[in-house]
Design a binder for these strands. Structure first.
Lengths: 345, 345
DNA sequence: GGTGCGCTTGACAACGTTGTCAACTTGCAC
DNA sequence: GTGCAAGTTGACAACGTTGTCAAGCGCACC
């Protein structure tokens, strides 16, 4: 009736509990024929180890936490699915933990989370992953983690991460606009608490520089990763004496806001104004016209991060060196960007 | 260094382990002064029970599973946050479990999930919550659950649920369109595997009937809860000899597809065509024009469902009778619906 | 004063796994 | 054949909690 335990498997295979445990955990010192016998017993009984018991006993628990504070459900779901794929693959549990990145006692909250649910480690999404004081606190308290961060290169700060080269992708988007003939390109910033924001700006800046286009500060508007700030920012740009012919919104939501503002002002996209976003959210495909953007392999990135953490967790001194891996978003050209019109239609 | 255990609390309060356990679990037979003393010790030591140990020993574990298969991240995140709020409140863990509702061995998969992670029960989102054969299977195998379903009234089938009256809300939306003067109102169905689809259709149907408008089958298009089906469905409606003056998409994604199709065909919204959606997804606010829709209190609904499940889990024979609770989405009027134009502009 | 009952409390085992450590087996050099 | 190291296996305790059961206490009742 009830699920089989390791005891049943041991009896079935004619070995001790401990040997079964060794097979389950892939430990080295088990003879091949014994291992096979045990494996067969496991398969026959359809045995799966009990998470709770496993986490209770071990110095090594089998559960991760995923910490995020992101208003964008598309991003969050992608990260969840990626981490979950890794956890299922490795037979780990996952405790999701949305939080407020500005909470004053976030560090304690996370420590409590780890203790309470006996988590082996945390996957940290931005912006938590980019708070160095938090990172140091966790490290000092012996909490294992991996960060998903925005960086043009490996930060090599001794703390594990997977990094996304937003700068490079933002460069590509800006370059695409320049190659369409645009010289006045507006830039709408994302939220200051995300490192991706300055990274994306740097990409924009450096593409302009490489093509000899001076940076006009009036074309650069601060804001948040939100539709509303996109809308407002766009209206400020439209009101300029010399408005831009293209606008690069730091993410798709901002770009959607720009699109709405353009519609509201009767500006035709893309013939009077080109718009580019960032992220490849589903609605970048579902707006009209569909948005040019940069596609992040978020699910893959997250899966990688979790696998990296799990691998690092395993045997302390296996001698394996784990490297931080980088990902680059890819330019996706759709219908919201077009060659700049040279004369009135 | 390490976290305090129930043993530390017992020593601190000068009582036995078991008494502390009783206080933690809110059992009745503890004298008030003892309870207070223990509670003080708990507070002073900042003690929190260990989930893994708790789940291991008990017939009653302290973890729920959330099962969903929904392409809409806004919906999923809302459900997650609602269930999570309940779990945090009640000191439960949560294992999320996205799945494929069409997988042939889903029932086994869920049984394995419950066993593997020692879950006390499952919160089932649509469409899993609406598969009666799955529901019966779970019940037969002693797996506790609560369903979030679409229904105009309590199904009273003996299995616990929280129900959402999509029919009523769809009636309101249709009525709103009729009151704006629309007589030819297109309807785009959602996915057939979701009970909300026929429910929303029934609301549409019955509003038409109440206002004496004959149902024209050419105006009713089958499809899925997706942007693409909204786009395609709208184009089929536009091609009719007598196209509709308003279109009711079964959710916001469909409505966004309709909006895009209208733009693509140069049809002005709302002056030439009114569009309504359903769900109040953020992008219903972020499209241009913003969509008229029905607002579901998804997070609240999910929180309720989880609390209901947890309450039912507790003492077997407490004599409390738990009732299924219903929720009604509310009409939200925005800019995508307008009075029908009587003459050409 | 003894009996029985209800309320409160505690001793102890048990949940299913892994860590520790010791014992056994095998292979190989002497 | 002996000695020794490496490889393999098992007995047992332990993780932190809850379920079971029985004991202690006070009180009402005969």
């Amino acid at each position: 009736m009830s699920r089989p335990t390791i005891r049943d498997v041991a009896r079935h295979a004619g070995v001790s509990l401990k040997t079964v445990s060794r097979v389950i955990n892939g430990e080295a010192s088990v003879r091949d024929d014994t291992r096979e016998r045990v494996q067969r017993a496991i398969d026959e009984l359809d045995y799966a180890p009990d998470q709770a018991a496993r986490n209770l006993r071990g110095a090594t628990s089998h559960a991760l936490g995923l910490v995020y504070d992101n208003p964008n459900p598309y991003y969050v779901i992608s990260v969840q699915n990626g981490v979950l794929a890794a956890c299922r693959d490795q037979d780990f549990g996952l405790q999701i933990h949305p939080c407020d990145s500005n909470a004053p006692d976030l560090a304690d909250e996370l420590r409590e989370l780890v203790g309470h649910a006996r988590l082996a480690g945390l996957v940290l999404a931005p912006p938590m992953s980019e708070r160095m004081e938090l990172i140091r606190y966790l490290a000092e308290h012996g909490i294992r983690f991996v960060r998903i961060i925005s960086a043009a290169e490996d930060p090599a700060d001794g703390y594990p991460c997977v990094y996304v080269d937003d700068r490079d992708a933002a460069y590509d988007i800006t370059e695409h606009l320049i190659q369409l003939g645009h010289q006045r390109i507006g830039f709408l910033w994302g939220g200051a608490e995300h490192r991706s924001s300055p990274e994306r700006f740097k990409g924009y800046e450096s593409a302009l520089k490489d093509y000899g286009i001076p940076l006009d500060k009036k074309l650069v508007i601060p804001g948040d990763y939100s539709f509303d700030d996109g809308f407002r920012g766009a209206r400020r740009l439209f009101a300029l004496r010399e408005p831009p012919t293209a606008i690069f919104g730091s993410n798709d939501e901002i770009a959607a806001g720009v699109l709405a503002a353009a519609k509201a002002n009767g500006i035709d996209v893309p013939y009077e104004l080109s718009i580019a976003g960032f992220e490849d959210s589903p609605f970048s495909r579902q707006s009209w016209p569909a948005l040019t953007t940069a596609k992040q392999a978020t699910e893959d990135i997250a899966r990688h991060a979790a696998l990296r953490l799990i691998a690092e967790l395993k045997p302390a001194g296996s001698g394996v060196i784990h490297l931080n891996r980088g990902f680059s978003p890819q330019l996706v050209i759709r219908d919201s960007t077009a060659r700049v019109r040279t004369t009135a239609p």
